[in-house]
Design a protein around this nucleic acid. Sequence first.
DNA 1: TACAACACGTGAAGC
DNA 2: TGCTTCACGTGTTGT
Lengths: 193, 193
Amino acid sequence: MTGQQIADAKAIAASKSHSEAERRRRERINNHLTKLRSLLPNTTKTDKASLLAEVIEHVKELKSQTSIIAEKVPVPSEIDELTIDNTSDDEGRIVIRASLCCEDRSDLLQDLIKTLKRLRLRTLKAEITTLGRRVRNVLFVTGEDHHSISIHDNQQMVNHWRNVIEEALKTIVEKTNNGDDYSFASIKRQKNK
Amino acid sequence: MTGQQIADAKAIAASKSHSEAERRRRERINNHLTKLRSLLPNTTKTDKASLLAEVIEHVKELKSQTSIIAEKVPVPSEIDELTIDNTSDDEGRIVIRASLCCEDRSDLLQDLIKTLKRLRLRTLKAEITTLGRRVRNVLFVTGEDHHSISIHDNQQMVNHWRNVIEEALKTIVEKTNNGDDYSFASIKRQKNK
DNA sequence: TACAACACGTGAAGC
DNA sequence: TGCTTCACGTGTTGT
């Protein structure tokens, strides 16, 4: 074989593998599109562009649905959250409502208890909801008796404690899941067929 | 110009418009892909195939989320539904629970009332939830006094009434929205930006 | 004939 | 260098 022939053969082989790779790529993309089509309702015999348009609409629809429901029901959301509000209980005592949402982990509850204990706070009520691997905690906390947060009519003090609680819980929310078990049993997910 | 030249010019023009059309098509598809990418969380700089794979996962995720939530909370679903169950109230009286889900419309409630009245049924309780344009009604109905459904221990009679109610409500669910106003105020949808 | 949608192979760019 | 991804223009098919 001459050098020219070898070079040609190499070029042909390269071109072949190239076109084959490209074919595989197209296959992958099209398979995904087919799968997407099957996930959508009433979406047969539409072209690629329209299919994608419908996927967009569907995703938006589902997103808005979940967020609407989340407004009514305190289910865990996909993203980490932490909001602090202050209310007051029947006796006019200052109560801070802390709602946090994060990935569930085995030591989450421990962390919360420890943190609140360290801050000398009392948890009046805790609403805990899990959804898949996400967990939402809504805590109603107040100070222990004779705690500065118990003193009424002091907006500055309340704001101070809001900040303290926010910072403390922030580190808990931001702590990443260490791969342990979850602290609460998860709701069974519907099979994705 | 010779005939040959004219033919060539035509061919060139055709080829040009063809390639331009193809470019527009690609553009449309890619724009949709970009939009999809923006709708997903944490999905920058991934290739097309992986992007679509993530879209699939995301759609599945959202779907299972909404269905899990729907199990816990009686929110309206996307598809029309009608399920009939029989329970019994405190006094052991037969009560039939009818849950129906359909597009909301102004005369839906009227239809329900009329139908139940026609069947000489009494509605003990009605739970009504709207979500977007969808509405879910959960009705707890029983017979009027001395109605045959009030007679206990007659499984055949109960089944008969289940069928009667199912058929009657089926026509209501299947009645298409005539474009009128909705009978209930709809929950505001989150803006799709 | 013309248009729309698709699969294909190829050149270019990034790693 | 080879491998991957993309955009491009073209051939083909169905309407």
